[in-house]
Amino acid sequence: MITLLVNGRSVEVDDDPATPLLYVLRGTLALNGAKFGCGLGQCGACTVIVDDAPVYSCLTPIAALHGRRITTVEGLGTQQDPGPLQRAFIAEQAAQCGYCIAGMMLRAHALLMRDPSPTESAIRGALEPGLCRCGTHLRILRAVRRASRELASARSGGTADTRP
């Protein structure tokens, strides 16, 4: 059994330790957020955050994740109570098919945790590993900028909800 800390919750899984995290998230834990895109670390659809950094969950075996903090898009908020980054993506209608978006949001989340007011090139740099085929890139960029602005104003206004 391997213990994983997913979205703040400790879970034990009996999958083979060599199993990539993606399959455990989607299969054993029934979480939809991380997506299978290539299984090769080329497209970023499977991106989750481990501790503070984005990783390709399709390439990362669970054996390497014992006790590490794993954040999926489900950890950013819910449909009923979306987090700030999710609200920004809704406000910008930043999706077409939406298949890449969870991965994009987690890359943006990791960036905003590290640098709440990133430059345009820092945002593009952070999102570079993520592929979008619908051509929603400019909306994704706008959503991340919006989230960054709202984060800044929440901080200066003392609002409690400062999770990106």
Binding site: A30, L31, N32, G33, K35, F36, T72, V73, E74, L76, G77, T78, Q79, P82, Q86, F89, I90, Q93, A95, G98, Y99, I101, A102, M105
Partner: peptide, 21 residues
């Protein structure tokens, strides 16, 4: 009108055939 399919896609809802269980 905000798209009805977007919220689920942003929060890990069952939005795709890939998500059927």
């Amino acid at each position: 009108v905000p798209r009805v399919d977007i919220p689920a896609k942003l929060a890990g809802g069952a939005a795709y055939v890939q998500d059927l269980r």
